[in-house]
Design a protein around this nucleic acid. Structure first.
Lengths: 196, 196, 196, 196
DNA sequence: AATGAATGAGGGTTCATTCAT
DNA sequence: GATGAATGAACCCTCATTCAT
């Protein structure tokens, strides 16, 4: 099993396409292989099994996004701008690829328990990133000291995730990235009138 | 297929138990039948098929919750108190039944597309409830006029849902209902310092 | 998994036929089901899996033979007559059913390790029967006291088994049962001249 | 396909090791190639296919034994001594190599039909050797004229084979070669008391 | 001669649903 | 109404073999 052959990404991209177009349960290995232009068995030269392929898919797409964010966020000073960049980038990633959005928001959620635990594992750094941003903000007195950081992280991720999911369910017919600004404002200032 | 025999709820409760204890994929119709103390075929006298049983389960438990909320919310005046009651009641419902929480937050999410669309349908009144609360708040100048109501609803639901899911994943080992207040505050006032 | 329905033996007999006619490796479950006139899944109502079906087949046919022999041998006094009856009955059993002979002597031997260990387990009582016969013969001073009973049992079984196998390989074209007498004599008296 | 390169025996010995240590079904060509220190494809430069490799293995090991016996047996006069030498040598060959014994007595038996027919072919000279010994013995009036030579050969081979197999099954924990003498005696004199 | 990446055919088993009793 | 024995469609993965290098 050798990761990173030329066919490694070829197969992952084929999986994204097949799952997005056929749905998780109809995404047979043979269908993915055909889409990738390789034999069924070739998939098993690059992935231990079907689950491993799907986990790798998520790792490759989200994991790489998270790593990129870790780097980019270092350049920014204020907590508010950091949070905005994260939300905007999250939206941009999924707005860029219709298929990837369908796969991460809808199809991969119906994976079995083991697979979903692995996916949760990949998301851990995302939450750690949120923790760090909020802690820094608190130290810089930008974020209220009363805030429960873990709860706030869940609020942020839950809001972002639910927003993307709704956008996918509504056939991606409005501008997702444009929602970064208002969502960011609501998260920072709340929904209350007179936020002066 | 006649709903509301004496065995109707018996079967739904058996389904909750079996899914919570065995997981979605190991919850065969025969296992649910055994837990309910009826024959496999009997289930098909009350439900059209397995999907219908699961949708009915969600409808019965969440739908009834939403109807109850619609009534109770009428008694309350302020938008802030309405939102608090909704969040708190949502948390209370799931904190009350360990099994139901596992089923709605983890197991039912891995259902197939068709089933999940039906579940989304059941949740629609929940979102309409949120829309109404926010619109009223806006009219009463409690909620900022700049707010995108649909986006704010997604933020609220996403935050609540993610909070419950994390509580379930962490084996329900802390007090979920106690999180209603801080979450409510963050949603209303945001995370910003000096929320005066 | 309920043994002994009316279809239990129906399936076992179908397995014997299909294996004998197609060979061990070409004996798919679906082929056996078709021959038995049942659905594929029905086989799994009576047998845990394919291995269990094959073990049951051997148990049913050889196990029942061994039990019958245990009873019949009690009626006979002399060790020589007991041994003769055993050999003759063994030959008769397999001469009676062309298919069963092919299955036990050729096809079932290419089973996997686990299956073959189970088959060896079924044969244990056969060896215990031989041990008992020889021990009795030794006590009655019919069998030489110098004999290693375990080795002698292996000689007897090996001779009988090899004789049947050769008869099957040669397409069962000569009278197997007729070989009981000369084989019995050789086992008792050896091949030496002047066995007076 | 050229037999007898330097790697020919290298591959065969690797096959014996791999089959003995992993079992017949887990003995993939790739595993044998790795053990032999060659590439998968190289095996096909020396053997037509996997079956051919296994047949060659048996031929190389048993065929060479039989040829050696043909020579050595010419030096001996009496039928009894010839038979003893054959049994003893057979036992010695397999007692010498734990791996070879496992492969010939257990693993190779679960080969497919075609392969086992080829193996039977290799054993034919062994049976011819037995026929010749018995015929000579009969002419020299050492062996009873009533004996069916083919049946007697099967008795001898079956006894020897079953004895080795039992020794392997019992983890080779007793002295196999020591059984040559008592087995030889039983074959010659039978199990009857008073063999004077 | 030697390599090893790529190929692709093939089968045991589960479980939602039916229907004769 | 209630039963539960019977149905049968659907799919991941292995591994012997090839062939371009």
């Amino acid at each position: 099993m050798k990761k990173r052959g030329p066919k490694y990404n070829q197969i992952i991209d084929a999986a994204v396409t097949v799952i997005a177009e056929n749905g998780y349960h109809a995404a047979q290995v043979s269908k993915i292989a055909k889409q990738a232009g390789v034999a069924d068995g070739t998939i098993y030269l690059y992935f231990a099994n079907k689950d491993d392929l799907l986990i790798s898919l998520f790792q490759e797409k989200m994991g790489e996004f998270i790593k990129k964010m870790e780097v980019e966020l270092k350049e920014i000073k204020s907590m508010e701008q950091k949070l905005f960049l994260l939300i905007q980038s999250h939206f941009q990633l999924l707005a860029k690829s219709e298929h990837l959005a369908i796969v991460t928001q809808l199809e991969l959620r119906q994976a079995n328990k083991r697979l979903r635990e692995s996916i949760a594992e990949v998301l851990k750094p995302y939450f750690l990133l949120l923790h760090a941003i909020l802690r820094e903000g608190m130290e810089a007195h930008t974020v209220s000291a009363d805030i429960d950081i873990r709860l706030a992280s869940q609020m942020i991720f839950g809001s972002v995730d639910e927003t993307v999911t709704n956008w996918v369910i509504n056939n991606q017919k409005y501008d997702l990235v444009a929602l970064a600004k208002p969502l960011h404002e609501m998260l920072i200032y709340g929904m209350k009138m007179n936020k002066s």
